[in-house]
Design a binder for these strands. Structure first.
Length: 423
DNA sequence: TCTGGGGTCCTTTTGCCC
DNA sequence: TCTGGGGCAAAAGGACCC
């Protein structure tokens, strides 16, 4: 984008200088990240509509170039609809490893600016640059330096919001996109916020917007003039108080460089709905093994296993069980998930998705030693650690439970794929 | 139009203990 | 012994974000 649009923005190069004093929070967000990274390998597609999205009939749009967005395509939209809206678009399959690599390189650029980097996802992060001003210049200068370096070194563009609080910086980024930078001066926060629609606020999605609309509240300014008690009654105490604060630009949250994970999970939507319990359990086993491997790789154990089931009509239920001892063993995760599934007593209900998640995480180092004395579990854990190292040497999938090997037939017909291993 | 997969957080319900 | 209720943790569901 263009200079033209940037000229309208206070603080943009060529425009009236905005006062960025005290605006030490930067929010950096990559522009159409997945699509932009995919274009690095397809330079011929630059300037054309491109959609990155899941392959099957049930995929959604992960990311789309601005050319495709002009046709109304946006992320999270079902692929079938996106294709109809923009039939001339090129469809690319996601390349998760590529995105992770570019993301890591970009985060490294951020960390050279300040150690106070808080990634929100692969493609965005908060930076607190208060400690870097002397070395690198004013916040807006640091923002432009980052934008230039990311573009030079990674070949993708990003946008930067500069403000005195996290959420105003994040909103500023939205207004700066694509390929821009916007400063919201400290004394301009309320004027910036109040004309915005309530849906611009972090935490206001479709449902909350509906509730607010019923109260006649359209803009952030409307929200700001509403008694906090009213908001709390309509939305609950936490959300009500939160929005009342945000509407006046109050946001005390600091930039924190690394929060420990709270949960690790995996889920899978079947290409077509499944009613065969054997297929469901095989999938639960596959998901459980994957989740446990990720727990071990990250050095976590978790105490609560939760199962998620989404039926053909999209209604979704979850069931969870807390174990006596935290685990990172796939067989234990699977046994729990399977028990939760069987306890549902489903009579061949048509199932669209199943998921397994482990919550209540703690560092492996601090886990109770009792597990180590428990002979059978110890056996599984050691087997799985051996699988981990085989996977590192020979590639993921080198060693798998027997029932996950294509063409395998369960010799005992127990319907439980878990205990037959092709070790 | 027909809805992914990775998460976090909040609210309500439930069961247990005192 | 019966009942009520406070306090708590776990379970379940749902909204939201990227």
């Amino acid at each position: 984008m263009s200079r033209k649009q940037q000229l309208d923005r206070p603080g943009a190069p060529g425009g009236p200088p905005a006062d960025d004093t005290g605006c030490t929070i930067l929010h950096v967000d990559m522009d159409a990240f997945y699509a932009s990274v995919s274009l690095l390998d397809h330079p011929d597609l630059r300037g054309t509509p491109v959609i990155v999205g899941g392959g099957g009939t049930r995929g959604v749009v992960l990311s789309a170039t601005y050319e495709a967005r002009r046709a109304g395509v946006h992320s999270a939209m079902p692929m079938t609809r996106a294709r109809r809206l923009c039939p001339q678009a090129t469809i690319l399959q996601p390349q998760p490893d590529r995105y992770a690599a570019v993301s890591a390189a970009v985060m490294e650029v951020f960390r050279e600016v300040t150690p106070l980097v808080e990634p929100l996802s692969l493609d965005e992060a908060f930076l607190d640059v208060a400690g870097a001003l002397r070395r690198l210049g004013r916040p807006s200068v640091i923002g432009e330096t980052i934008r230039a370096r990311v573009a030079d070194e990674q070949g993708v563009t990003c946008s930067v919001g500069v403000a005195s609080t996290k959420f105003v910086a994040k909103l500023a980024t939205t207004r700066a996109k694509p390929d821009g930078l916007l400063v919201v001066p400290r004394d301009g926060v309320v004027a910036f916020l109040h004309p915005l629609p309530v849906s611009a606020l972090w935490g206001v999605g479709e449902r909350t917007e509906e509730v607010l609309t019923r109260l006649g509240l359209r803009t952030v300014g409307d929200l700001a003039r509403t008694p906090q008690g009213t908001l709390e009654r309509a939305l609950g105490p936490a959300a009500g108080a939160h929005l009342a604060a945000l509407a006046w630009g109050r946001d005390e949250r600091r930039v924190v460089s690394r929060e420990p994970d709270k949960s690790i999970g995996a889920e899978e939507t079947f290409a077509t709905d499944v009613d065969d319990p054997t297929v469901i359990q095989r999938e639960l086993l596959r998901l459980s093994e994957g989740v446990a491997a990720r727990l071990r790789a990250a050095g976590y154990v978790g105490r609560t296993v939760s199962l998620k089931v989404r039926f053909a009509d999209f209604t979704t239920i979850s069931r969870s069980r807390t174990l006596r001892e935290a685990t990172d063993v796939g067989q234990e995760v699977y046994a729990t998930a399977r028990a939760l599934y069987l306890a549902l007593g489903l009579q061949r209900a048509r199932i669209r998705l199943v998921g397994v998640r482990v919550e209540g995480l703690a560092d492996t180092a601090g886990r109770t030693q009792q597990l180590l004395l428990d002979a059978p579990e110890r056996g599984w854990r050691e087997a799985e650690l051996a699988i981990d190292s085989a996977a590192r040497r020979f590639g993921a999938g080198a060693v798998r439970p027997g029932s996950l090997v294509p063409g395998h037939h369960d010799p005992r017909g127990s319907g439980d794929p878990g205990r037959a291993r092709s070790l």
